[in-house]
Each structure stands twice: as C-alpha cells, then as structure tokens.
C-alpha cells in the first residue's frame, strides 16, 4: 500500500488534488481510500487530505511517520507536517509561500533552507517545485495544484501509469480547464524528471 499526505492552505485546491490522485489510482486498478477535512477550508486555515492505495486500502488515516509521500502545496505547511513522513519517505514541496496572517508576525516564516532542514530529519528525498511559476507560464494560476500532481505522478509511475492522471483530467474537469491542467501535469513531471 502507498500513502500520500497532501497538505496546504484552505483555497489552494487540496481536495481536488487528492481526488485526482485517488481517481488515477482507482483507474490503475488499486483499492483507494482518501480523507478530506471539510468545514474550515475557505477560512485560510491549514488543510490536509490523505490518499492510500494498493491491493488493500482499508482506512483513510495516515499516522505520524506513516506517509510514503508528503505533497505540500505550500512551503511552511511542508515543514509543519514533516512528522507525518516515514523515515526515507519522499517530499514534493511547492515553493509557494502563503504567509499566515498572525497578528504580529512574531514567528518568522521559514525559508526554503530551513524547510529542507526540517524535512531532512526524516528524509533526503525532497523535490522543490516552483508551481506558481509553472502555472503562470501556462497562463492559468488555478492549475498550480495540478503541477504538483504532475510532479508526484512521475514518482508514482510504477504503481499508477501517468496516462491515468491525464485521463482523469479529461474526464472530470470542465472542458476549458482540461488543456491548462494537462499542461500543468506535464510541467510538474518534467521538473521531477529533470532533477532525477
């Protein structure tokens, strides 16, 4: 069984991200369970979602130390959720930063080096992706999350052939978003392929 924890900030499209991965895993013939936390998603809070797939997928919970993959749509949230990674797991991290609107800015927002150090306590397999830049290049800022899905799809390709991700985008997204999202998947994949 493979487990992926998706984290980020409300409004970044975390539920869509986990649905795309879950649906692609299902098409590849796996059992799938995902979890979603609803309720505060639109209020700028930290949001997470789990995907588990494989021959069996019984529960949707991922414990600390239990995630094979941590997919973070935001830099700080990657660090905050580092404990969920299993030792020598793999982190795919967007360099997008969304600063918490804490009232006095007392605690400093960590830089990429600090996030790498914290994740490094679990693993040295870390891919940073400038998803915002890629989405900007595609001309549709709302596909940032699919850039990240593209990156992780390259790493999951042994268990989920990449074409299933493309299929899910074609079948489930409104027509005008299909093109940009397919481009986003391709861009995300390329980032990982370049760095391996």
């Amino acid at each position: 069984m493979t487990s992926v924890k998706v984290v980020g900030v409300g409004g970044q499209g975390i539920l869509t991200t986990s649905q795309v991965i879950g649906l692609a895993a299902m098409r590849a013939g796996h059992q799938v369970m995902t979890s979603e936390i609803h309720g505060l998603a639109q209020r700028g809070g930290a949001v997470d979602s789990n995907i588990k797939f494989g021959k069996t997928a019984r529960s949707s919970g991922i414990d600390k130390g239990g995630a094979d993959f941590l997919l973070s749509l935001e830099l700080l949230e990657a660090a905050r959720n580092a404990s969920f990674l299993r030792p020598r797991g793999c982190a795919v991290v967007s360099t997008t930063t969304i600063r918490p609107k804490s009232i006095n800015g007392a605690q400093a927002y960590p830089g990429q080096a600090e996030v790498r150090r914290i994740l490094g306590l679990r693993t040295d397999v870390i891919y940073f992706t400038d998803a915002a830049k890629e989405a900007e290049g595609i001309g549709e800022p709302r596909v940032e999350n699919l850039v990240l899905v593209g990156s992780i799809s390259a790493l999951l390709s042994e268990s989920i052939p990449e074409r299933f991700f493309d299929e899910v985008v074609r079948d489930f997204f409104p027509p005008r978003f299909v093109g940009p999202n397919l481009k986003a998947l391709a861009a995300g994949r390329e980032i990982v392929q370049r760095s391996t």
Binding site: V9, R43, Q107
Partner: peptide, 18 residues
C-alpha cells in the same frame, strides 16, 4: 516508531474570518 519532529517554532496558521 519514529520520534515526532518539533515544529513548535513555526508560525501558526489559524482560521480567520474571511
């Protein structure tokens, strides 16, 4: 079990009114 990583120094992200 792996020990938890201390992240108490990171800035909190609390839900706010929109």
């Amino acid at each position: 079990e792996p020990r938890d990583i201390d992240t108490s120094e990171l800035p909190l992200r609390v839900p706010l009114l929109c």
